[in-house]
Design a protein around this nucleic acid. Structure first.
Lengths: 202, 202, 202, 202
DNA sequence: ACGTAAGCGAGACGGTACGTCGCGTCTTACC
DNA sequence: GGTAAGACGCGACGTACCGTCTCGCTTACGT
C-alpha cells in the first residue's frame, strides 16, 4: 500500500499541535504574549500540560515554530506571486505578499508587534524586511555623503513596521494595495530611489 | 531656625533607590530585561529584598520610575537648549537633545530597545518621538492624496528608533550631530517637507 | 517642687502602657491571642509601633506583665479577705478570691483559657491553683495505696480550670459562691478530704 | 486481570506524607509546636517546601490530619478491646485504650498538651474525653442539688488530662493500668458514682 | 483485523520567584 | 526623656509556574 508519504506525522500529534497553536493564538490576542502561561494554553486546548512539553520546549518555542510554519507559507505565496503579478507598478512586489500574510493573521500581528507582544518576534519581522531592502539597495548607488546603507536599511525596515502597526491598530483603514503603495512612496527617498515618476521633482 | 528644606527625601531612601536603580541598569545590560528578577537586583544592590518592595511594585515599576526620572532630565535640557542653540541648520532641535540623552545611557537603550528589552519601553520612546513629529506636522500641509498624517507619524517615529538602534548596535559609528542630520534628512520626505538643498534654504 | 514620690513613673509612660494594655485586652477578646500582632495593638492604642518596643519585648511580654499586675491585685484582695470572711463554711477561702478576679476579667479569661488562648497562660493559672492545693494537701494524710499526692494535685487543679471554663463559656450560669461550693465539693474526694459533713460517710 | 486495588494511594504520596509527619513529630518534640515552621518541617523531611503545600494547608492542617489518622487507630483498637477485655474490674474500658495510645506517642502528647503545645489540640483531646464521660453520665442520676452534669463533665475531662500530664511529665511513673485505675477512682465521686469498695462490686 | 508501539492523561515532585506580612532595630526630628 | 515617623534587615508565608518524571490507558498505524 504505502500510500502515505511516510513523513506524515501521527494523526494525534497533528491534532495536539493544532489545538495548542490555536489556543496559543487566541490567548495571545486576548491577554498578550507575556501574560500567557503554559497552563493557560493547555487548559484552553484541553490538552494535558505534560503533553505540551512533548511538542514544545516552552511558549517561546511554540511561538517560534508557529511563526516558522506561517512564514514558510509566505515564501511560497511570494514565489508564486512573483511570476504572475508582474504588472503592478508602484507597488513593491514582496511587500504585498507580506501584507497579505499580515492581514490573514491581523489580530495576532497587532498584538505581537505592540506593547503586549515580544521584541524577539518584532525583531524577526524587522530583519525579514531588512533583508528585502538590502537586496533592493544592492542595485542602487546611494549618495556617499548621506547615511550609510545599513542605516538606511534599519531606518526603513523599522519604518515599515511602524506603518503596519498604524494600519493594524486603526482597524485596517485602507486596503493592502494602498498601504503598500504608501509605504513604498514614503520609503523611496530613504533608500535613495527617485520618487515615483510623476510630476513632483523634489 | 530655618530647618532643612525638609522636602529633600530621607538620605537612606535616596541611597537605597540609587543602589537599586544602578543594579537594575547593570543587570539589564548584562542579562536583558526579561531575564532579571527582583532578587537579582537586590542582591546586586546589597539591599534586602523586602526593601525593594517598599520603593517599587515590581521590576516594571522600577523601570518606569527610572525612565520617568531620566526623561524628566531630557525635557529640562531641551528647554535650555532651545534658547541657546538656535543657529544649527539642518539639525532638528529636539532630536539632538534626545540623542544626547540616549548617548548618555547608551548601553541601557541598546538593550531595552532590542530583543532583550521590553516592548513597553520601546513604545514609550516611540510615542515620545511621535508627539514631536505630530507637532511638526501640524504646521505642514501634506499631500491629501498621500498617506494620512498619522501613518506618516507612525512611520517616521518607528524609523527614527530604527536609526538609533543601528547607531547603538554598531558602536556609535558617528557623532550625534551627524546622526541627527541624517535622520532629519531621511525623514523630511516622509513628513512632507521638501528635501534639503532645493528651494527652501533652511 | 519634687512633689511626686519619685517612683511614680512618667505620666506619658503610664498613659502609653495603659493604652497598650487596654488595646491588647480588647483585641485578645476579639481575635484570640495567637491572631493578634504588635501592629494590631499599637494601631488600636493609637501609639506608634516603635513605642511598643520601648515598653514590652513582644506580645508575650505584654501579656505576662499584664497578668502579673492583675494577679498582684488578687493576692492583696485575698489577704484582706482571709481576715474578714472567715465564717463561710464549705467554700474554700482562696478559691473565692480567685473566682472574683476571674469574674472581673471574664471575657479575657474565657478567651485565654480556651482554644484561642495561650497554653503558657493556662499553665500559669493551673500552677497557681496547684500550689494552693499542695498547701491544702500538706495537712492531710492521703491513702498511701491511692494515687500520689502530686497526681492528685495535677488532677484537681486541671479540674478546677475545667469547671471555670464551663462557667465562663456558659455565661456564668451561677454566682461565684455557688461555683466555689461545687468545685470544692467535687474536689474533696480527690484531695482525700471527707465529703462535706452530711450523711454520706464515705 | 484484576488490577491493583487502585484505591491505595500513590506510593510517592504516601512516602511524602509519612516523611512530613515524622519530621513534624520530631520537631514538635524538640522545639514545641508554635516554634516550628513549614520550612523546618520540609528541611527535616528532605522534601521541597512547595510539596508540603500539595498535601497540607499549613502546619495546623498537618497537625490535624495527623491526629485524625492516629485517633482513627484508637477507635479501632477500642472496638477490638471492648469485646475481648471484658473482665477488668475497676478499670474504665475506653480509658485504657486511650492511655495505650497516649503511651505510644508519649513524647508528642507531652509536648502538645503542655506549654509548648497548642490549645486546639488540648481542647480536641478534652472534648473526646468529655463525650465519653457524657455517655457515662447519661446512665446515672446525679444529685439535682449538686453541680449540673455538664459542669461535672468539664470538670472530670479536664482533670483526666491533668492526670495524664502528670504521668507524662514525670516519665510515666506507673503503668497505664494503674494510671487508669487511679483516674477512675478520683473521678467516680465527681461523676456521681459511688466510690469503689462500698456497695457496688464492679 | 488486530497487536503493538506511540501518544496521551493524570499528577507527583523539585525548583525558583513572587508579593505580603510581621518582627525587632535603628535613626531622626519634635515636644 | 518620651514619642512619632518610618526605613531597614530578616525571614516565613502561601501561591504560581516551570520543566521533569513515572505510570497506566487508549488509540492510530502497520502488517
Amino acid at each position: 500500500m504505502m500510500q502515505n508519504v511516510h513523513e506524515v506525522e501521527d494523526l494525534r500529534v497533528r491534532r495536539t499541535r493544532k489545538l495548542l497553536q490555536e489556543a496559543f493564538i487566541e490567548l495571545t490576542v486576548e491577554k498578550g504574549f507575556a501574560a500567557i502561561t503554559v497552563r493557560d494554553i493547555t487548559e484552553r486546548a484541553m490538552v494535558n500540560r505534560s503533553t505540551f512539553y512533548r511538542h514544545f520546549l516552552d511558549k517561546y518555542d511554540l511561538m517560534e515554530q508557529y511563526t516558522n510554519e506561517v512564514t514558510a507559507g509566505v515564501w511560497e505565496a511570494e514565489l508564486a506571486a512573483e511570476k504572475t503579478r508582474q504588472g503592478e507598478e508602484d507597488i513593491p512586489a514582496g511587500l504585498l505578499s507580506l501584507l497579505r500574510h499580515v492581514q490573514a493573521f491581523a489580530d495576532f500581528y497587532r498584538v505581537m508587534l505592540g506593547q503586549r507582544g515580544d521584541p524577539v518576534f518584532t525583531e524577526r519581522i524587522r530583519l525579514n524586511a531588512a533583508s528585502r531592502f538590502r537586496a533592493l539597495l544592492s542595485n542602487v548607488k546611494t549618495d556617499p555623503n548621506g547615511p550609510p546603507d545599513e542605516m538606511r536599511i534599519s531606518y526603513v525596515s523599522c519604518a515599515g513596521i511602524g506603518a503596519i502597526m498604524w494600519w493594524l491598530e486603526n482597524d485596517q483603514p485602507c486596503n493592502i494595495e494602498q498601504l503598500a503603495r504608501w509605504i513604498g512612496q514614503l520609503s523611496k527617498a530613504a533608500v535613495g530611489l527617485p520618487l515615483p515618476g510623476k510630476s513632483t521633482h523634489n
